[in-house]
Nucleic acid binder design. Structure first.
Lengths: 351, 351
DNA sequence: TTGCGGTGAACAAACGATTGCCCTATGTTA
DNA sequence: TAACATAGGGCAATCGTTTGTTCACCGCAA
């Protein structure tokens, strides 16, 4: 239905290649002004846009990136995606979104389709440690960037934050408040963020001279459900924790629910600290104390790294690390939310 | 880098077309068993996948859909996207995501790129009334489906819910609770949901014999910020409302904030009802009474309608309408959340 | 020997765009 | 006047697949 070069050429009574050169503003093109204006008028009149598929075949580039994540309904990934798109769109790229629900088989399937489509690059935020999918990407020589989670040490382009440091900050905060029995809702040990945040938690305890109690660490995964279940386990202990460091804000949300069902007050009976500072964290009551990381920037920086890789053709395993910052709200310090009252409402999305 | 038909043909000592036919399992192909097995072995060994770009050029289909929405960080659209992807992926399609932030110019730009890419179809959830972009799609003969909002009456494929009915239910609920001064945080009159929900609100008031007070309707748009500002306006009235019907859950969230900053208790001092039942609604405290619509189904149904259109080639302006249902929580009826305690935590996304 | 039908594959033309190279007039210079 | 620039475009290959058509060969019957 849209017009082709051939048709335009026929209408302008020139060869298609000539139309192409005019359309692409070929600098080395010598052409009579009259011919040029005739062609240009035609281009405008028909709103000619080259067929992207044909162009992609010839130029071996599709101007499409892909983002592979567990689940877009998780606010963390939604914010990440916006960052990526905001980094990619100004350069003419559009973005395919693939949800895996954390299932390796789905990740594989998506990556294979993406490779067949010849997407120009992939941003992966659903990576496991020693992920075969990542090795496959390396082997395929598909440009890619890992975000938030990494796979093998230091050999992939990566943007994320210092998870050990973030977790240490969070735990130290709780220690500073006088807590001694501090539980940890831990991520899977198959994921870098899971391991490192647990490591930061342990390090902070050790540094403070608090003996590690294995009972206080329960694997919750990164989702709300798991957080609620793990929290239930912790609250059933003979000597339950008085404070919790949750590997993720969503996990902390699960903990809120579990605490609420038992009639516990936050933070008086149970202090909670999360990780990521998703938009939801500030809307909970009380507000969730959490480790802030610049999610949107993760995305935009990852996109720019990927584009650089695509356009220069060289894969530099550069790692961009942001320093996480502790953000104290009411879930750890009673009354910490008060100064928020009277402030303007935070920016937020359309319908 | 990936293997091509030509290379395989050379290695199997046959013509490329023969390899293609074997790979595609051409039913009418007559071939010696020995040749076939030789080729098949090669296909498996090299994990051959046809170049999607070349295939797209030849077959005039890309197996790519596009979703155009205001903002993926809004939970409504995140859920919608999941529905779409879940409907499209099993049929071999992948999905481009385009955020417009509600800016018509961005919508146009995205749609033009999409057309140049020859995506097989578009799902639009960021439509205005009498949207030129929609007319352009019609004119282009690009398969498309509108979701949630429609543009011109009844002439586009559409999936959504009965907004008048939903708004009526919400307002009647508040009337039934004894409220008389009921405010409305209204969407823009340039968007179908804005108009229709306001109409439902007015109809319910009229039916109950409550005089409409123009002061009680304030345009908030569909986002949190607007909700907070509009709520501030309403609360500054001499005779402020005791109940609010917000056009959207996100708007209601803004109203929560405004109420909280004034020290008002929900629902005792101010009852609030939202619309859409996004996941966040159930996590607010108190839980947000809202009009439930099957967001995920909106997406999966829209995807299936679009695929049907693509595969059959006929555009039937079929409209799928779901009936909205009122979901009562603590923001309108004190204590309505209590029965939730002890229930299992809701399902939710990964990290 | 001629003709015929069936096998098993090769041929070639698309699908649209890009781009290095070639060709033909019309001046220009020696 | 012959050689040569230069301007203004045309030619054709190429990207990787798909698919309608053609072709060579072999065995067999007449």
């Amino acid at each position: 239905m849209p017009v082709t070069l051939k048709e335009l050429a026929a209408r302008a009574n020139v060869h298609p290649s000539t139309v192409s050169r005019v359309a692409n503003n070929d600098p080395g093109l010598r052409i009579a002004t009259t011919t040029r204006t005739r062609i240009e008028a035609l281009l405008r009149e028909t709103e000619y846009r080259p067929n992207g598929v044909a162009r992609g075949l010839k130029l071996r580039t599709t101007l499409v990136l892909a983002v592979v994540i567990p689940d877009i309904t998780n606010p963390f990934f939604a914010a990440l995606f916006r960052g990526i798109e905001d980094g990619a769109t100004p350069r003419g790229y559009q973005v395919l979104l693939c949800n895996t629900d954390g299932i390796p088989e789905r990740q594989r399937a998506h990556l294979q389709s993406l490779a067949a489509r010849r997407v120009d690059g992939v941003i992966l935020a659903s990576t496991f440690l020693k992920d075969p999918a990542v090795r496959w990407l390396r082997h395929q020589r598909t440009p890619y960037v890992l975000v938030n989670r990494f796979s093998d040490d230091g050999i992939d382009p990566f943007v994320g934050s210092d998870d050990v440091m973030g977790a240490t900050l969070a735990t130290q905060h709780l220690i500073g408040l006088g807590h001694v029995r501090i539980g940890h809702l831990a991520g899977q040990p198959t994921v870098s963020t899971g391991i490192l945040r647990r490591k930061g938690y342990s390090a902070a305890l050790a540094e403070a001279g608090i003996a590690a109690d294995p009972e206080l660490v329960v694997e919750s995964g990164f989702i709300e459900e798991g957080g609620a279940q793990a929290m239930d386990r912790l609250l059933s202990l003979n000597d339950p924790p008085t404070a919790i460091f949750a590997v993720t804000d969503m996990t902390a949300v699960g903990a809120y629910g579990a605490a609420r069902r038992r009639g516990l007050r936050i933070p008086e009976d149970l202090a909670i600290v999360g990780y990521n500072d998703i938009p939801l964290a500030g809307r909970l009551i009380p507000g969730l104390t959490t480790v802030h990381v610049p999610i949107h920037e993760f995305g935009s920086v990852a996109a720019r790294m990927l584009l650089e890789q695509i356009e220069t053709g060289v894969l530099t395993p550069r790692r961009v690390m942001f320093s996480p910052q502790l953000l104290v709200r009411g879930s750890s310090v009673a009354g910490a939310d008060e100064h928020l009252a009277g402030r303007p409402a935070p920016r937020s999305p359309a319908e």
